[in-house]
Design a protein around this nucleic acid. Structure first.
Lengths: 352, 352
DNA sequence: CTGAAAGCGCTTACAG
DNA sequence: CTGAAAGCGCTTACAG
């Protein structure tokens, strides 16, 4: 007959049983207090809380997850947007995943092809997928994922497929707001730099600009609308074209901050002061907006919050599907944008 | 007598037992295969791996951690460096924490005071602390943590306390390399913009610049050394001062990219072409370096890798302490920097 | 080279 | 409002 083995405990940290013993209750009651459930007498709760504080007890997440019986794993598939955008996106989604006690597997799809990347990601068990831009705008990727019947949340698409989850800002409205803001300062010749056509947001922003001009009774002139590609370099060319116009604009609204910063640089090279001689406004409120001088008036797109929301939405969808609730009719969340006024805009000099 | 209850399983994902059954072995053998242990016959290993692939089995991290018996929790205490720096830092440390299956609790210490923040963080059970700059250079914070006898890793300090762990680049050497690079292109009047004195790296970078000048037989002129504070704004002032000098420098080496970008802007405003009329070099290789035009020649500081290494180091130290191994004699890791040549530097025009 | 038993620290599902 | 029992899916510690 074999002897009984000793306990195997390795952590020296207190467990729920230690707390229970000290408080003179059962582990079950401690569990109730930790999870903020009702049905615990006030005096009991207090005693337990004291024990927790005194022992510096912190529940084991591993045990909790295992006992809870649910362990979700999400995939985050990205191509190569700017490192800054991706960082912000990762901060939000990793943090939310950790809070929700869910794993997040990050997969980059470079030249090897989107389908390959999807297959690689799905090789392990993955319960849902987060799609940042520009992948959220890629028909191939979206189709491939739909074919596999896996829940997907698309972030920052201006035109989310109806049967996907999505989190975006209202790009059209944001561009509309900015254009009206510029117009309200007396500007009548407002140049616009379009974003990369591979993102649906670009067309929406242009549309918002057009709509605002029309509502303000200003002409929509093709000369004042130039194509850009979201890069600083493309902004340089676009601004150059705009400022070389015989009747040059008194304000430039660029579809992102990189291109707006480029417009500021071009203005300076031409000896124009911003904002005295030229108003320049951006979009996104990235780090660059507060780095350059003057700091840019721009639209804040809350990337961290958006990715956080995306993860949250996805988790809820997966749980809903698991309960055969057949999804929450595919939520499309629009998060609020904000117009941030800084130093790059000014009322039109009446002398002009 | 009560009836036995049914199983409680909620996940529909396959478990180690399912795989074992399919492969016709015990769960223990599957575990060995998963963990890459030896002592499994090749044929058995293959059978198990097939079963794993066929069932798309992925081990439960929660169960693994719980059974493994170790559950570490690290704290990351930060003040407010730039969002871009913090993002990169978080990406590295969150990812490494997740890989190592360790929790990371992020705490911001704003105005409420550093000691308050430390106390709040340590209220829960925390096994070690990661300190990004500029906190890693704060004597108060370091002392407070030492007093509590908790393992700490300081990142990007130029002068790490001997009894702490640390991860840095060789700031002096990096600045030395850059200065020699500029000198090798024929420049003899090289301006230098110092970083914020609240970071030890600033003095080290200055020292590297001085040392290189001396070794190249160039005079170290106080006129060519101006104080900055790592902000774009401070770089504007510093570059202005430098370019207003009667004998102005033909090159400017700024202690970070923000200030270098500012120097480029000032040069443009004065009608100077970069790099034809003025070479400008930065430090850190942040997003800004590749955003502005011309793109900046700079020193790459691998923030993501550094934070990853920091977390890894801390985990090892905690484990070593737990085994009474009394630490790995407090490693100080120097990660390699790299001089990245882009478009903002050029050989001195012989006509000058 | 392989496996049976016990245990990690919680929560679920009951029962009272 | 409270608790005893069983189980979550792994790994450790043995045994052969």
């Amino acid at each position: 007959m074999r002897e009984a083995r000793g306990p195997r405990r390795q952590r020296n940290a207190p467990t729920i049983n230690d707390v229970a013993a000290r408080a003179g209750v059962s582990p079950m009651t401690v569990s109730r207090v930790i999870n903020g459930e009702g049905n615990v007498r006030e005096a009991t709760r207090l005693r337990v809380q004291e024990a927790i504080a005194a022992m510096r007890y912190a529940p084991s997440i591993a045990a909790r997850t295992l006992a809870g019986g649910e362990e979700l794993r999400l995939g985050l598939l990205h191509s190569n947007p700017s490192f800054a955008y991706l960082s912000a996106f990762l901060v939000g989604s990793l943090d939310q995943a950790s809070r929700s006690n869910v794993q997040l597997v990050v997969e980059k799809c470079d030249d090897k092809g989107e389908i390959k990347a999807i297959e690689h990601l799905l090789r392990g068990r993955i319960d849902g997928i987060v799609l940042p831009p520009p992948l959220s705008d890629s028909p191939q990727v979206v189709e491939a994922l739909k074919a596999r019947d896996i829940p997907v949340v698309a972030v920052a698409t201006a035109r989310p497929p109806a049967d996907l989850l999505s989190v975006s800002i209202d790009d059209r409205r944001a561009a509309y707001d900015m254009t009206r803001h510029i117009g309200s300062m007396g500007h009548r010749r407002i140049g616009f730099i379009i974003g990369n056509p591979n993102q649906t947001a670009s067309a929406e922003r242009l549309e918002g600009y057009r709509q605002a001009l029309t509502e303000m009774g200003l002409p929509v002139s093709d000369d004042l609308i130039v194509q850009g590609y979201f890069t600083y370099r493309s902004g340089l060319d676009a601004a150059e074209a705009l400022l070389a116009l015989p009747e040059r604009p008194t304000a430039i609204f660029a579809s992102n901050d990189d291109m707006a910063a480029a417009a500021v640089a071009i203005a300076h090279r031409r000896g124009l002061d911003v904002p005295r001689d030229l108003t320049v406004c951006g979009f996104d409120d990235t780090a660059l907006a507060t780095t350059v001088w003057p700091e840019l008036t721009t639209i804040r797109q809350p990337v961290v919050e958006m990715s956080r929301t995306a993860v949250d939405l996805l988790i809820k969808e997966i749980r809903a599907r698991a309960m055969r609730a057949e999804g929450l009719d595919h939520s499309h969340v629009i998060v609020p944008h904000e117009l941030i006024r800084r130093q790059s805009d000014a009322p039109l000099d009446p002398g002009k």
